[in-house]
Simulated assay, not measured.
Amino acid sequence: MRKVLGSLTATVLVILLVSYGLWTSKRHVGHYLADLRIQLVINDGQPGERGNLLGIQPELFPSDYSSVKRLHRKLAAYLEQAREHGLINDKTIVVLPEHVGTWLFAINEKSQFYQATTLEEALNWLAFSNPLLFVDAMFHARGRDRLQDAHLRMKANSMAQDYQDVFGGLAREFGITLVAGSIVLPSPQVNNGQLQAGHGALYNSSLVFGRDGVPLGQPQRQLFPSGYQRGYIRPGKDAPLRVIDTPAGRLAVLIGSDSWYPDNYARLNDSSAELIAVPAFVAGSSSWSRPWHGEKHNPRAAHLDLGPKPLTEGEAWRRLALTPASTAKAGISVFMRGQFWDQGVAGHSFATRGGQSIAEQSITAAPKGARPGHGARLINLWL
């Protein structure tokens, strides 16, 4: 009898394991048609032969990341509309927001993942439907928050490939220089023109693609990650600040809060940076208008010039980023819009020319069917 029960138990376990394996192999195929509309909210200067800085502030949701094809389609639709506005030429530098590549961990997941109500629930589904990748990522996790580290590490190889396919493909398709926001990967490097993930700590990095779709140099690591990320993203404080030659001029990228610190601009001044791109990200749909709490984990933040009165998050960004201390002739700071499960994202993109800030123009009427305060944005600065 014991042998019979043992055999039955083993058979049931095998059936369950096989069923689980088959379940994990099946992936979500969505048919939701995303809103592809976008508004031109900054168009400063006059068209000329020197090109332009063009920020695309996309409105993105988990379903937009259900496949590489879908994400490409949405971003390409934004670029096509920019081209219809006459904003695309062979010297255009397009800037996308911080973490636009990080969400690539959502590619090709189960339907339960996209239907989750919270980010925590979605990440649980991510681990449950990719058990071998998750166990391996936990084994190699480096950060203090090993669970978050593992969630971002587990699909690093495919994320690196998808990042290059999507953003390198867009640069080549539209003939533009593309600052591809940022992506969190373990020790990323470009080898023989291909972005590859390593096996070290996680870094928040940005890569610039040339008009042929090939990376221009190595990834730019974020020097000072935001406080909520420091448990799993390593500061790249010793990383060089790279300046890249583009058809429109010498370009530097400062990721997020790296754009707040005068020392970074001094270094870029020494490297003769002419243009500065700031891919940025603010978590929380109402955070832009809430009090700014600063970056207490970073000793440098104590020396920031914020003036006598308390500031909102938005006011702090406008005061600190793209500072007049920079000798660059122009810059642009681009944020993301949208909702990722229970985590909203906020921010109003802006540009500077000769140290003078240029904010979004007032929008008196949203496009038909669009929700007030929502939707994608185009921010253009003629050089």
Rank of each mutant, 00 (worst) to 15 (best):
V12H: 07
D90F: 09
T364G: 14
I363C: 03
T323A: 14
R146G: 05
G249D: 02
E121I: 02
V179Y: 11
G256K: 03
M1L: 00
R300S: 03
T364P: 01
V18A: 15
N298T: 00
H99E: 05
E98H: 13
S272N: 15
Q57N: 13
R211Q: 12
V18L: 15
S187C: 12
G200P: 07
L306N: 01
H374W: 09
L79A: 11
A277C: 05
L195V: 10
G30L: 14
M1W: 06
D245F: 00
R172A: 15
G45P: 12
H140F: 08
M154K: 07
L383G: 02
N380Q: 15
S187N: 13
S287E: 03
N204Q: 14
G181S: 10
P219V: 11
V12K: 06
S67R: 08
Q81D: 15
L133F: 05
G369S: 07
H31N: 14
N130Y: 03
L87R: 06
I56D: 06
E274V: 08
R300I: 03
A273S: 07
K155C: 04
V94M: 12
I93H: 01
R377T: 04
R172I: 10
R142S: 11
L207W: 04
V100Q: 11
Q39W: 12
L22R: 08
V135C: 06
L36E: 15
S63M: 13
M154Y: 09
G249V: 04
S289G: 02
P308A: 04
H28L: 10
G331A: 11
E274G: 05
L132D: 10
Q220A: 01
V166Q: 12
A330D: 10
E80P: 06
F61M: 14
L311A: 11
G369A: 07
A277D: 02
F281R: 04
A122V: 01
Q39V: 13
S226P: 00
L216E: 05
F335T: 05
S63P: 08
R2M: 07
L5G: 03
H293V: 01
P188M: 14
D90C: 08
F105T: 09
D245H: 04
L207R: 08
N298F: 00
N269E: 08
L311N: 09
L40P: 08
L53C: 09
L202A: 02
A359C: 03
H297C: 00
F224S: 11
G331S: 11
T352V: 15
R27E: 05
G256M: 03
H293G: 03
I332E: 08
V41N: 13
L17Y: 01
L40G: 11
K237A: 10
A150L: 10
W292A: 00
S63I: 13
T327F: 04
T177F: 11
V345W: 02
T9I: 15
D145K: 06
F340N: 03
N204G: 05
Q356M: 07
R290P: 01
R250K: 10
D90Q: 14
L254N: 03
S271Y: 00
E315D: 10
F209I: 10
A77M: 12
V334I: 12
E315H: 00
P97T: 09
L185S: 09
